[in-house]
Design a protein around this nucleic acid. Sequence first.
DNA 1: TACATACAC
DNA 2: TATGGTGTATGTA
Length: 642
Amino acid sequence: MSQEEVISDSEEYDPLSSGLEPEIESLSTDTDSRMALNTNKAGMEGLDKDKINKIIIEASKGSKFYINQKKRQEIASKRNMKLKQEMERITKSDLERAILETNYEIELLESTRDLSSIIVHVDMDAFYASVEMRDDPSLRDIPMAVGGSSMLSTSNYVARKFGVRAGMPGFIAKKLCPDLKIVGGSFDKYRAVSKVVRGIFHEYDPDFSPMGLDEAYINITQHVRSRIQHFLIDNNRELREDPVFDKLDICSIDQYWDRGLVENIVREMRGKIEAATQLTASAGIAVNTMLSKICSDMNKPNGQFFLPPVRDNLIEFIRNLPVRKVCGIGKVTEEMLKSLGIIKVQQLYEKRAELKILMTDCSYQNFLRIFMGLGSTELEVKSDRKSRSTERTFPEISNPLKMYEMLEKLSSELSDDLKKKGCAGYTIGIKLKTVDFEIKTRVMTIPYPTNDCKDILTCSRTLLDKEIALLKPKMLKLRLMGVKVSGFGLGEDELNQTEAGESKAKRRKLQPNMPSLIDMFNSNSNSFEPPSINNSNYPLQAKEDLGNYTFRNSLSQQPEDSPDPNPQSSSTCPICSQIITGGNLTLNKHIDSCLNKRYIRDELSPYTAPIKTAGKQCKSSTNSQLSIQSYFTKSKDNNHHL
DNA sequence: TACATACAC
DNA sequence: TATGGTGTATGTA
Ligand SMILES: Nc1ccn([C@H]2C[C@H](O)[C@@H](COP(=O)(O)OP(=O)(O)OP(=O)(O)O)O2)c(=O)n1
Ligand SMILES: [Mg+2]
Ligand SMILES: [Mg+2]
Ligand SMILES: [Mg+2]
């Protein structure tokens, strides 16, 4: 039972935990949350977590990945301690005031409660794995997963019993389950299946909202109502025999939330999916997206769960759940809340005043809505994509020439993709992941939108060169590179349609006369970024295929072009463009200080979980401050509404 | 705007 | 031997 006793033999000496902050360290409750098995998934109930985690940790220990996870965990843990201390320091009077405020906000929110919509969340069971099992019967009864030895996309339910799940490296999964069969996937196949499934969703709600390939939110309110209508008034005999009405006593359209009817219709939809694809789906039925999403997991696989549209029912339902079940609350938020003593949604409610004081308004509002069981009752119209990107993991690269080659491939891919989609953006970015799993992103904005391969390459090279220069004399060792274009503004099609579009288009019409990026770099006139310096002293072996890129030389000097400057000369800081005199030592010191300004803002990084998940943005709380104030002025006269 | 972080699938 | 790829939202400066 007592874990302290069990782990004593594996306890490590941790230099970070000695000395300075003994009381904080001793309070640490979270040591492995980032590495441990995440059982928040259907089919993973009742596993021997301790045994599985031991294997996972054992297989991971000492790896660069593990070290990085540990580091991040430490940061989050410290942030959580501090948060807890802040909570303990809240004064009684502040708390009382916050309770009054929060109760009033709850009351306002309560008045927005809408139980009228039937929101269904449908999600395919073990999607990729099920497709592969369907197509290869030998996989059907054995533990299997889709992916490779370094990463699994998903696993079937047999494998989940061993702790094997999506996002787990295959080689670790093999340790958990030596008989695990790992098969490679084919995205095209899943996309094709998805198309079929979406066709069925469309029959029930033309405005359904897909989330990824295997799931969607479907508002079937209208479908059910018109189905009743036809059943009641249509003289068509076939419709009168609509089987979903079997043994039900439906005599009015107002009975559209009838449990039997709604469940039959959802069962029918799942049946159509299975008939069309030989794959099973599960569904959740509730009054909003937040709840229906949770419900679709309740009876997985091949099941459905109906949450009655009754306020007290759904509040009881949600409050008994661990906060982690809620979409948008992941590992980090779970741990953060745990440090405040919050595990179940009920405790979210009990600590509402503390949360109001401690959290940003956005997070706090989100927690309010969660414990009240509120969510989106309308599905959002699919909004345009805001960015496109491509990235790749590879065996370590530390030679910049190889990095350039990679950027070239990525830029070309991204450019093709952008052109195919007919979009172009002002902002070009790169993503780098070092072999230590540290992630850097760098972006630059240019004066006109582009989807041109050369432009993307030029910019991404500039950004990369800057990082290389910055890190010198340390070597940049990468395991991943990526390129991204964002800031689309208006797409090509839209440019000439709206009025705003036209004026924007006009502003961009200087394009024909606008110098190309390359020209801008060459002329060095008023360049939007200081010219990059690549005076790194890596061994740069000339390669045949470098000749293709005439702009390469204009972009950044080759190492021999800019040898290490005279130790006494002045140079430009690649970060702030300031001119630094006094040789390399001074320059490096300056760069270090710039680096610190740039990357080390705060010992504790902010807590930044995204709130928006599915459905329409909450229209509520546009002016909660005003509401609170009006409450206080009002409450002087009548505070009975508390 | 730029960057890091968290989350979903 | 080995820990993914694509996209969005949020906090801070
Ligand atoms: N980290 C992840 C999670 C999921 N997927 C892919 C594979 C899944 O099959 C598909 C759908 O994701 P789900 O979360 O719905 O998981 P499954 O459908 O596999 O299982 P479940 O039955 O729990 O829905 O997305 C992925 O590539 N990487
Ligand atoms: Mg699924
Ligand atoms: Mg899914
Ligand atoms: Mg969650």
